[in-house]
């Protein structure tokens, strides 16, 4: 099932990138998608990590919230940059991720980094070391709202 879905996604990707609808190119795309899935299966890459289609539903709920967070914190960082006094207070903070799977922790670490103002410096199994540009940013991350949302993202497939 996962292989079929991977092949279909690859074929859609081919069509979007090529933009030509001649029979030859469509056939070549289908053959390429099939060949890639066959090779990926031999390499054992078609697993929940390689083709995480299970997360589509929760991603649709999580991404809009993440987008709003990114805009808010990008605006805060922009205000810091244009402020003549440069009122930054760089802080290193350790947070404990509550996700159980590697995918969940990667999503959490990537979300922290994608949000301007916080960057995951070390992403371990038990603990993340996060550099925040302001003390307030570090404190709001330590409050754990994003952590809870990623855990929910991971849990509801």
């Amino acid at each position: 099932m996962r292989k079929v879905s991977a092949a279909i996604s690859l074929f859609v990707f081919w069509v979007l990138l090529s933009g030509h609808f001649t029979p030859f190119l469509l056939t070549a795309g289908a053959v390429s998608a099939f060949a890639v899935v066959v090779f990926a299966r031999r390499l054992e890459l078609v697993d929940p990590e390689g083709h995480p289609v299970d997360f589509s539903g929760s991603a649709l709920r999580y991404w809009p919230w993440l987008g709003v967070e990114i805009v808010k914190s990008a605006w805060d960082v922009s205000r810091l940059i244009v402020d003549p006094k440069l009122p930054i207070s760089p802080t290193l903070v350790r947070v404990k991720p509550t996700q159980v799977s590697a995918v969940g922790r990667v999503v959490y670490a990537n979300s922290i980094t994608l949000t301007p103002g916080t960057v995951t410096v070390v992403a371990g199994r038990e603990e993340f070391l996060v550099h925040a540009i302001t003390r307030a940013g570090a404190e709001s991350l330590a409050a754990g709202d994003m952590d809870r949302r990623v855990t929910r993202f991971e849990g509801t497939r």
């Binding site: 990008a74 605006w75 922009s78 940059i81 244009v82 760089p90 301007p116 916080t118 960057v119 550099h131």
Partner: peptide
């Protein structure tokens, strides 16, 4: 405008880690 703000931050910020936050403004917003 946000790209320019990010690049100004890349120049103004005092150390590597804070510059990283400025660069992420370019890459996101």
């Amino acid at each position: 405008v946000f790209c320019v703000i990010g690049a100004v931050g890349l120049l103004r910020m005092p150390d590597f880690y804070t510059r990283m936050h400025a660069a992420s403004v370019i890459e996101t917003l």
